[in-house]
Amino acid sequence: MTRALTEETAAVPRMQQPAAGAAPRRRWRALRQVLAPVLLLLPGAVLLALVLVWPFLTMLGISFTDRYPNGAALTLDKYRDVLGDPYFLRIILRTFGLGLVVTAITALLGYPVAWYLARSRSRWKHLVFLGVIAPLLVSIVVRTMGWTILLGNEGLVNSALMALGLTDTPLPLMQSFWSVVLGMVHILLPFMVLSIATVLGKIDPSLSEAAALLGAHPVRNFLRVTLPLSAQGVAAGSVVVFCLSIGAYITPLWLGRGQVTVLAISIHEQMVVLVDWPTGAAASMVLTIGTFVILALYGLAFARHARR
């Protein structure tokens, strides 16, 4: 019975130990309380250090050298190359522009679906949920090929247009900025829907019911009550969608057919074709900084929100 009691106190660290406990045993328990999380974290922390922290610091270091290997000086040259070159600048703008456009479209398209998932009492709701999630589990290569079948020269859309006599030659539906946007929206829409639905589901419906009882028009009710309350879901979804879209490689490459160069494609070129690691590292850091800025803005906005 004593053992059972002491074990219980070991599991609940904040609980005070009965004064009668033997001192060495207490010390052992206190030690275990410290040691257990350390040992549990150890394998994960070693892996994280090995595959994330160390590589990231290495990349940061290489971005400040003039060449690799045997880089001589610590220099900002490569950042100047990347940020000062009009060619690179256009790629950076295109990358972040693509991210913004994709984020805005997924938020607009996704909000009503999230609303449906959070509020509807339809018996189809479960199937809709599956329908939103399932595409996440299908390989991006497969989905990109699906777009090729739809939009390619011999694809569904062109066959339909030609059969209807609307055009004689296949339209070049691929290889444009907007075909890349289409593919990215398709890939990232589920992330947005799920983020918004999570927050919408937590909003107490009685709040908008109260607004309705007090005579608020449904539109006003939505704009003044539900939308602000769900802002965090939209923001969280936007962070995920934006960060994933600025790092995308395969979709812009395949659906853009070399006509839509984004940073990821240009980084790959620097690394593999030109074997210029410092420039590749500096360009990667531009993406990283973009990501950190977005994450920090989100953190600031919603940390303040939570305090109020």
Binding site: P55, T58, M59, L244, Y249, L263, A264, I267, A281, L287
Partner: peptide, 13 residues
């Protein structure tokens, strides 16, 4: 949420 291409570059380096 990290851009995949950055992870790829860092790990490769």
């Amino acid at each position: 949420v990290f851009p995949a291409i950055v992870l790829a570059v860092a790990v490769a380096m």
